[in-house]
């Protein structure tokens, strides 16, 4: 890939193309690329997954640590989402202090997962008020061909489903060589996904490639899950200095449940 930024002419051409409802790879504006999930990226992690969305690839790993609960939730385990934009994933990523996307992705994944109540944090207590499990999700893009955020959420959700609780020895330390004591406690039927909408001109597209994403002016990501048998939005963030109109919001709300169902089906076929 090149490090050359998108040109004015290319942006205008994308605008025209999207207004005709067309894309270079033959997808409609709201089609996603092919989704593939693999597990066991690392057998040193309690759970891990590799997600490919077209040429975009993200890996996520779950580590569990024993720690103290937060004072305001003495009877709950902790969740921490971390991650980095590695310079392996794109020529645009430079070494040095984290770029904003590197901070934003884990935060958006954190909110989508936390607010969906997917993880039974109250079942992650070892000694009430004293010792609890901390679930750490680490997310790394391996190849950035656009829409890292949606790939990252799927990777995190898949890795959590794959995660096991390690055994503790008599001193309360993790014994990695003893068999696992079971799966990470998750609420059944909850598998949050983010669906991000990107806007260029008057067109709204889903799952952009790198060049499409660069052409777009603004994005909004919706964290969605199922609660009591119904779709719920758990998190949302608009990123970028452009606006969405009320009618565009309504348009997205029509698409959102179906898009969630479609991605969910694919994700579940791998769970």
């Amino acid at each position: 890939m090149s490090s050359m930024a998108i040109s004015n002419q290319t942006i205008e051409s994308f605008k025209k193309m999207f207004s005709e409802g067309k894309r270079f790879d033959g997808r409609s504006l709201t089609d996603s690329r092919e989704l593939k999930i693999e597990y066991n990226v690392s057998n040193k992690a309690e759970g891990s997954a590799r997600v490919k969305l077209g040429k975009t690839e993200v890996v996520a790993g779950i580590k569990l640590q024993v720690g103290a609960p937060y004072p305001d939730s003495p009877n709950k385990g902790n969740l921490m989402v971390s991650g980095d934009l590695l310079p392996i994933a794109s020529p645009r990523v430079e070494m040095g202090p984290p770029q904003f996307t590197a901070i934003e992705i884990p935060r958006l994944v954190d909110r989508a997962i936390r607010e969906s109540s997917m993880i039974h944090l109250d079942k992650l207590v070892i000694t009430p008020g004293e010792k609890v499990w901390t679930v750490i999700i680490d997310i790394y893009p391996i190849n950035d061909d656009g829409n890292l955020i949606d790939a990252a959420t799927i990777a995190a959700t898949a890795a959590l489903h794959n995660a096991k609780l390690p055994a503790l020895d008599e001193n309360g330390k993790i014994d990695y060589h003893a068999p696992s004591t079971g799966k990470l406690p998750l609420r059944e039927g909850i598998a949050p996904i983010t669906v991000s909408f990107f806007k260029l001109g008057n067109s709204i597209i889903i799952d952009p490639t790198r060049e499409e994403e660069e052409a777009c002016d603004v994005r909004v990501s919706w964290g969605v899950s199922i609660w009591n048998g119904k779709h719920v939005i758990n998190s949302c963030q608009k990123s970028g200095a452009e606006i969405f109109s009320a009618s565009e919001l309504e348009h997205m709300m029509k698409i959102l449940p179906n898009k969630f169902n479609e991605l969910s089906e694919k994700l579940k076929s791998y769970l």
Binding site: M4, Q9, T10, S13
Partner: peptide, 9 residues
């Protein structure tokens, strides 16, 4: 200068 169209690599 290139007018219109688009570039790819």
């Amino acid at each position: 200068k290139l007018e219109g169209g688009f570039v790819f690599r």
